[in-house]
Design a protein around this nucleic acid. Structure first.
Length: 804
RNA sequence: GCCGGCGUGGCGGAAUAGGCAGACGCAGUGGACUUAAAAUCCACCAGAAGUAAAAUUCUGUACCGGUUCAAGUCCGGUCGCCGGCACCA
């Protein structure tokens, strides 16, 4: 009898062996085929590992281990995205340096990951807060600056009242700070910006060249928000001044009955003297300015606005004089900050026109009811009317014609717009990469010389941001005052730091050559390893991290620093692990499961198996302690197979097909995120061994190899106990023969008029006539009436169609 | 409102490419082992009718309709849930 399965001993033993043998050290042998598997590196929070973390880590660990067994040189690295607010806030509260906090948290995380038996190559660990790492983050920033893609500007930003920090649009969720949940207001500050908008088109185009799951592609496209339309110049009546608008419906130009400007539109101040109701306008603008973007959209359920008195505009195509209104439903940050309003064919304009009694003119016919009754926005079926030379055309034709007309007359042109905004890159915080820029009275913004990188984060007494919103670095006169690298005169350092997204925008490059002192990575390493073959991460990073890192990568490609345009060949996403009550795990709900407890009570192999078996990988799944027990039971059953072992390197005759089928199923399922069915197939296989109370050494060996990527410790132990050569992780992946995955004799369902009436057992390559004959015999007198048709789907089903 | 995804037993979930719905696991029930319990092993496990027990029959993949010899799967419509975006002209 075998000794009982003791997961503590087994797991500790093998983790030690792997460390000692350097089992998962990535080789620098560039002659082998490579495979780069990547999971998002975690933020080492004070709470330690969450049970959500092992789900993606195990999934790609399975892929990495399988690839090694298939002979690939595999890079499966891990690191720490360690700059960030929670650490800084903890440091402020407890008066501990964030560096120390980070170090402690990293140690804890690392211990937890080690206990789960992941095959990470720890020699390649990176940490974004390590000066040897952020030297290159700063270096990339300077490259962006030198290329004109980083600039500083006064702009209204999203300001978190609690964190006292500027946030990117992406970090504001539902009008509150994504991190702390506090109110976000608009505040004008001078901010470093990155011109991600310059790459908007490429970031869309690039999606066609990569293998991302569909919903990731769709979200990225929506976020970038490309739209095609035209810019048209309206004139201020009686003046030279042009008012440029943007529209996606230039075909409706003849239906424009008024214009609307954003409250921030500069024309208002320019013609202040001529505006009759400037005070009313000012009041409205002030009201709008006080609102955050969120309030402006959320609270303004009913449209508001003020007409500009004393100014009107002229529609350039028909000379019609139309009023100009100001309303906060028009945004200064998109298009030109001014629109032509076509209430008959735009919902917002229609609503606005109804409220303020403005005329509604139909220019696209086809609406079932009058445009006075309901807006008509269908572009597929309508026909142009009331539009002179456009009359009778379809919307698509009219668009083409009007743009040609506008361009010919010089009053407009086609134009593509994007919703994507430039990336607010400054944070007024301590725990981030210092922005390596010096401001000189004479020379302006001057980059720190590359030789001075990394520009180290100085020691400060307090990490708290100042009340006026400056970074704590601003209080460090010694550090701030410096000399201009350009003219040598007195100058001041930039005191803002970079956002957390900076370090994670290029970390996958560093893994390829993490100790390089001369470059962010060597050319050879990059050419060999890039792109990442499979990158898995959370859906929540689809519009932030994924877009930012693609942007940096494309920039680095344009600079000749990396060999490929897209960093990730394949992107998948995992679902969340919820509490047992189906709600998101949180301390306040009291449904948090600590992975340490599961590892202690059931073992890492059980946790890994369970998280893979829990359900479809891309859907969220509720935790179930009973489910964990079921997986532990499965591993116990595998353990006990050693007592059923019989001689024979071959598969036994009655299980040969099953063996080949299982190898095929498991091999395919590991590739396609279907870990749950792969495990189910192995469970079904061992049920067969139990039925016979026997398993040949050959069958056992194959099973252990198949299961190893999921449950690496127990399989190594059993492998060794059974006296198989070497280690499982060094063995080659089991192979199967396609021809042997089909039974010689197949069960065929026999239907009459589509209903199952009998079952027959036939040789797999029996001829149709034979099968039909057997089916008729099996049916006997259940077959009555006139046979109309006989259908045989080889190896599956017979259907006999009869008429009564 | 728009975009994306999803509705299958008591539960988590299976079902290449339209071909025997419910694999695998959990929970449950019965049995074996045990002085007993736990653990383990074996069997049963969608609903209804039917039977001493079987056999057998009917219904069933959110709902309504369609295509097809055949629909969980394809098409049209309805309802519900989840996620994302949201005055982007």
């Amino acid at each position: 009898m075998a000794v009982p399965y003791n997961h503590h001993e087994v797991e500790k033993k093998w983790q030690g062996v792997w460390d000692e043998e350097g089992a998962f050290k990535t080789s620098d042998d560039y002659s082998k085929p490579k495979y780069y598997a990547l999971v998002e590196f975690p933020y080492p929070s004070g709470q330690g590992l969450h049970v959500g973390h092992p789900r993606p880590y195990t999934a790609l660990d399975i892929v990495a281990r399988k690839r090694r067994m298939q002979g690939y040189n595999v890079l499966y690295p891990m690191g720490w995205d360690a700059f960030g607010l929670p650490t800084e806030n903890y440091a402020i509260q407890n008066h501990i340096h964030p560096r120390i906090v980070t170090k402690n948290n990293v140690e804890r995380f690392k211990g937890q990951l080690h206990a789960l038996g992941y095959s990470f190559d720890w020699d390649r660990e990176v940490n974004t807060t390590d000066p040897d790492y952020y030297k290159w983050t700063q270096w990339i920033f300077l490259k962006l600056f030198k290329a004109g893609l980083a600039y500083k500007t006064e702009m209204p930003i999203n300001w978190c009242t609690s964190c006292k920090v500027g946030l990117a649009n992406e970090e504001v969720v539902g009008g509150v700070c994504e991190r702390c949940g506090s109110e976000v207001v608009r505040k004008v500050k001078s901010q470093w910006m990155l011109k991600i908008t310059e790459y908007a088109e490429e970031l869309i185009q690039g999606l066609d060249t990569v293998d991302y799951i569909e919903r990731v592609k769709v979200s990225q496209k929506n976020w970038i928000g490309k739209s095609q339309g035209a810019e048209v110049d309206f004139s201020l009546t009686g003046k030279e001044e042009k008012l440029r608008i943007y529209t996606t419906r230039p075909d409706t130009l003849f239906g424009a009955t008024y214009m609307v400007l954003s409250p921030e539109h500069p024309i208002i101040d320019k013609y202040r003297e001529e505006i009759g109701n400037y005070e009313a306008l000012s009041a409205y603008r002030e009201q709008a300015a006080r609102k955050s973007d969120f309030e402006r959209t959320e609270l303004a359920k009913e449209k508001t606005g003020v007409q500009i008195e004393g100014l009107t505009a002229t529609n350039p195509v028909n000379g019609r004089e139309i009023p100009i209104w100001v309303s906060d439903y028009v945004l200064m940050t998109y298009g030109t900050g001014a629109i032509m309003a076509v209430p008959a064919h735009d919902e917002r304009d229609w609503e606005f026109a109804k409220k303020f009694g403005l005329p509604i003119i139909e220019v696209v016919a086809g609406s079932p009811v009058s445009v006075q009754e309901a807006v008509y926005t269908d572009v597929a079926t309508g026909t142009l009317v009331n539009s002179q030379f456009l009359d009778g055309l379809s919307v698509a034709e009219a668009k083409e014609r009007i743009i040609a007309f506008l361009e010919e007359k010089g009053i407009g042109h086609s134009k593509t717009n994007y919703k994507l905004r430039d990336w607010v890159f400054s944070r007024q915080r301590y725990w981030g990469e210092p922005i390596p820029i010096v401001k000189c009275e004479k020379c302006g913004f001057v980059p720190v010389d590359d030789s001075e990188l990394p520009l180290m984060l100085p020691e400060v007494e307090s990490y708290e941001p100042t009340d006026n919103g400056e970074s704590p670095l601003a209080a460090m006169e010694d550090w701030v005052n410096t000399t201009c690298p350009c003219c040598g005169g007195p100058a001041r350092r930039e005191t803002d730091t970079m956002p957390q997204w900076a370090g994670s925008s290029w970390y996958f490059l560093r893994y390829t050559d993490p100790h390089n002192k001369e470059a962010l990575a060597s050319r050879e390493a990059l050419e060999y390893w890039m792109p990442v073959d499979w990158y898995n991460g959370g859906m929540e990073h689809t519009t932030l991290h994924l877009l930012y890192s693609r942007f940096w990568h494309r920039f680095l490609y344009d600079q000749g620093e990396v060999p490929c345009k897209e960093p990730y060949q394949k992107r998948t996403s995992h679902g969340m692990i919820l509490g047992s009550n189906g709600e998101k795990m949180s301390k306040s709900r009291g449904n948090v499961v600590n992975p340490d407890d599961i590892v202690r009570d059931y073992g890492a192999d059980t946790l890994r198996t369970y998280e893979m078996f829990i359900g479809a990988f891309d859907l969220s799944a509720a935790w179930s302690e009973d489910g964990v027990k079921g997986c532990r039971r499965f591993l116990e059953r595998v353990w006990k197979l050693q007592d059923m072992l019989v001689d024979g390197q071959e598969y036994s005759a009655d299980l040969e097909t099953k063996m080949h089928q299982t190898i095929k199923k498991v091999s395919n399922d590991y590739e396609s995120l279907k870990y749950n069915t792969a495990i189910a197939a192995m469970m079904a296989l061992i049920n067969e061994f139990y039925k016979k109370n026997a398993v040949t050494r050959g069958e056992y060996r194959t099973l252990l190899a198949l299961l190893n990527p999921v449950a690496p410790h127990i399989t190594e132990e059993l492998w060794q106990t059974a006296g198989f050569q070497g280690r499982v992780y060094q063995t080659s992946w089991p192979s199967y023969e396609e021809a042997k995955t089909v039974e010689n004799t197949v069960e065929i369902g026999v239907q009459v008029n589509g209903k199952i009436r009998a079952n027959i057992s036939m040789p797999k390559d029996a001829a149709k006539e034979e099968v039909i004959a057997a089916a008729r015999e099996a049916l006997g007198d259940k077959l009555s009436g006139t046979v109309v048709k006989e259908i045989y789907v080889p190896g599956r089903i017979v259907n006999i169609v009869v008429k009564p």
